[in-house]
Design a protein around this nucleic acid. Sequence first.
DNA 1: TGGGATTTGTTCGTATGTATG
DNA 2: ACATACATACGAACAAATCCC
Lengths: 289, 289
Amino acid sequence: MARTTPPRWRDVAEDLLRRIERGDLAPGDGSAARRRLPPEKDLELHYGVSRNTVREALSWLQNQGAVTSEQGKGTFVVHRPQADHVTLSAAALGLAPGGGDGEWYNRDAFIPAGRTVTVSPVKVEVQEGSQLISWYLQTDEETEFISRHQLLHLDGRPWAMQTSYYPLDFATAGASRLLKPRNIPEGAVAYLKETLGYTEVGFHDEIRARVPNESEKHFFSLGDSAADVVFETVRTAYSESGRAFRLTITIWPADRTRLHYNAGDVPDDVLTRPGQGGARDISPSGDDA
Amino acid sequence: MARTTPPRWRDVAEDLLRRIERGDLAPGDGSAARRRLPPEKDLELHYGVSRNTVREALSWLQNQGAVTSEQGKGTFVVHRPQADHVTLSAAALGLAPGGGDGEWYNRDAFIPAGRTVTVSPVKVEVQEGSQLISWYLQTDEETEFISRHQLLHLDGRPWAMQTSYYPLDFATAGASRLLKPRNIPEGAVAYLKETLGYTEVGFHDEIRARVPNESEKHFFSLGDSAADVVFETVRTAYSESGRAFRLTITIWPADRTRLHYNAGDVPDDVLTRPGQGGARDISPSGDDA
DNA sequence: TGGGATTTGTTCGTATGTATG
DNA sequence: ACATACATACGAACAAATCCC
């Protein structure tokens, strides 16, 4: 039999949520940048329930990503910053402004003008027998790979974690700088074209969302709420001969990132200012079944 | 000052997680399809903590999406089904097998052969003054829109919720079937081309991940855990004149959906079997800075 | 700088309700 | 009807972090 009345904590939680959305919480404290909820003791009296029941409600609100509690300070309405918009299709392959050269984030991830990307030192590792990597790069499982890992910041704030993989052969066949923990200023793609003669003619992206691991939580300052998930994009790039060319895995904090893709003919301002909105007039035609 | 020792519930939770991952839980019950954890009372004795502390640990594991509890039954390890892979770039615009005609899911969302999509009746509404819709379609805020909403099933299982929007003008200008709560078998894009003369030449997608609302939770059978989030894809399609053409918002359950995009030249088996893996050999070149 | 007040975090105990088998 | 198992709810004590005078 289904429950007829909701539990008390649920009533408390939903009332708090309404009050948060209406903005009429913390009446004496409406000035602060970060809106604060009344302390648990006050809520206890206000709703006529025990502190534990109040905490059940707050716990649910935390999981929903609506509030966050800090020991000794109080419980606060979560402030979600404006999202960063990243175009993953436009800059690559010379399909859009920015061309296809330079650092990976100029190739793979187009960001609106005026933003600054800073890059951590490269961490280089040699790995063997990763089933996942082998699968994407279509190699034997015993193949050894070079992984190059970096942390990316946008305007000084944590933005993405990124790792690229390629077979160890690349380094011995002429692209030795892949093994050095230094940036490749002209971009690894350009470098590999120059040294090994490979041209990137297409790519395939796979996107998932998942719970972050500890390292990702730390870098992006994420908690345990359902809002604190990450995107994982897996880009497989192909050479002219149709062979898997490179594998780049990027982690993005989903609460403040929007991913964009363009295909076909798209107005310029949509390409260059994703999420910004170019004002223009309308005209008809529709879709959907 | 940072805490030196973790709380007891955290120890319990992490130990349970280890035991879950190693598979050595529920020793007398290893046969069942769904692995069951020992009851709370047993854990209480095993770890020497109170039942409330055990429940703190289980609660955290639930939020992480690792377990789920059912009243009267027990606590079970969550079984994540194999993901469905959907290609959002290939089928549209005739860029890939499947062409560009027919129902939306043949145009917009390419799925591997052998899967069957079934569609709910269309729910048609007329809406006014949606700031969001106006923004994407670049219209005035007072413009009225037709919305056409459908539930999609893949092989009989809930797969996606989808809503398309276009100005009410479309219906009065000749595309009257948009207002009828019936499928448009040849596809709305083809229908609008025929009636209003618009051709779709490109599109822009924006992808986000967020906590589901009640309706989405219900349709996809999602809970409150951090694994139970949804993708929301917003597709804006453009006509030859570069005007916003249609707006299609699709909701996907992120725990069992992978989104795919292709660009440029990509091997055929990657196009037609995303997530399936065509076995082939390797060859070098790399990327990343 | 100190010390007390405030506020949330952790942990326990207990009782009762509800769903399952 | 009974036993099992999770859910809800209350009360209480102390710890830990912060705030404020």
